[in-house]
Design a protein around this nucleic acid. Structure first.
Lengths: 230, 230
DNA sequence: GCGATGACATGACAATTGTCAAGTTGTGGC
DNA sequence: GCCACAACTTGACAATTGTCATGTCATCGC
């Protein structure tokens, strides 16, 4: 059931990679593996957390339903990333819902197991704090973007994060639906379309889920430009 | 230096209140107390974290400077609340800056002390995770609000959080500057003014930093109303 | 008391974004 | 191949918000 390649991916996850070998083995041997289809729910907001989740393949979105029914995408995770750490250890309800947005492989680590290991070895706690901090940091970055950047600038940053090149041109694939990208960036799909067209003069060509960036640096300039200056 | 009343406040903080007595004593005896004037910097973004901070009195804002220079307020803390947990334990730089927005009393718990206690007793780790989770949760809530609510609705929620009444009318004091409230809610001061006037029909009167809410429930209805319906 | 300063409100205007409607395109079922 | 459907784009319009300018008011130092 648990293929070696999957275990290898799990070992590389931020949550596990800093742990000593024997702990990893124990966690892996008690973990639950599961496939999810596109659109399938992994857990629901207000549900009680019983495990930490590690994405082995595919894409997962965390989102929150406002009382009005409006959906706000909080984050999107993929291979090697984990979520639910801080909640699982405290027996509190999830503040968000999780859904597979593509077919997924997810590993679930039961929280009682994590808790008991944590009592044996405090390093585990530090490890969990590490990945929790990463989430915290990315939420803070998102808040900053939403409050201080225009839609087109947020799209520009999103594109920049898809490439690891520092300068020059490049081509990247959009990792998921434009609808989901729009949600993740806090805008409507229509606004995303317009943002893309606004990026054309800066050297961005979009074709389906394929993006061409003429010059990374000039796109970065655009993203960091103060909105007051032209 | 450390008055008993301050220690009492510290004990009630989310970070400490679930810890066993002997740990609290040790932490309190090694903590550093300091006063900050209005406008004084507590730490700067990119600075390395050396302590966890507990607010004993006054108001502190955490904010982030975008490369463009725009400031995004991430959160505002007051008496009994703590911040910097996840960062302090990992020797990583702060993702945000912290500034006193009113005269403040802050207690600093050196992170090496926390780390060593954590190795003795994993319960400390759980405690830290608990308050970290609280921050995470509030960031998620903020994201939801920014993405799914109009300015006036965010202001309505802000007012609602100032009162613990469930129904009927009430009066509350705005806890800090309108400029800071605007920043915290992700809008310009002018927009906050307009949002306040838009709340008048719903029964909200603002006079200086004093707010009168005619009926809590109808304000709540307004905040949760779908923007499509009138 | 007086002037300076900063917080705040308000009006006019521009830019951005959401909303609604229509049209295009690709995909999957049959 | 054909149909139905969902994703996506585009345009027109309305609502919201930012920007700029102006004016009021309280506070503070002198």
């Amino acid at each position: 059931m648990a293929h070696e390649t999957q275990k290898a991916i799990a070992r590389q996850s931020l949550l596990l990679k800093s742990l000593p070998e024997h702990h990893i083995d124990k966690l892996l041997s008690h973990a639950i593996w599961r496939r999810y289809d596109r659109g399938e729910t992994i857990f629901l907001q207000e549900e009680e957390a019983k495990a930490v989740h590690v994405v082995l393949a595919g894409w997962v979105k965390l989102f929150r339903m406002a009382p009005t029914g409006a959906e706000a995408v909080v984050s999107v995770f993929t291979r090697g990333e984990s979520f639910g750490e801080a909640v699982a250890l405290r027996n509190v309800p999830y503040p968000v819902s999780a859904e597979a947005v593509s077919p997924c492989e997810i590993m679930h680590i039961p929280s009682p197991l994590l808790l008991s290991l944590m009592r044996e070895d405090p390093e585990i706690g530090v490890s969990i704090l590490a990945s929790t901090f990463t989430h915290l940091h990315s939420l803070v970055a998102q808040l900053e973007q939403l409050k201080a950047q225009t839609g087109a600038q947020r799209v520009a940053e999103f594109l920049l994060n898809l490439s690891d090149k520092v300068s020059g041109g490049c081509e990247v694939e959009l990792p998921y639906d434009k609808m989901l990208i729009a949600g993740r960036l806090g805008m409507k799909p229509e606004s995303l379309s317009r943002a893309f067209s606004r990026l054309k003069p800066v050297g961005v060509k979009i074709n389906r889920n394929h993006a061409e960036i003429a010059d990374i640096q000039s796109l970065r300039d655009y993203a960091e430009r103060d909105s007051s200056e032209k």
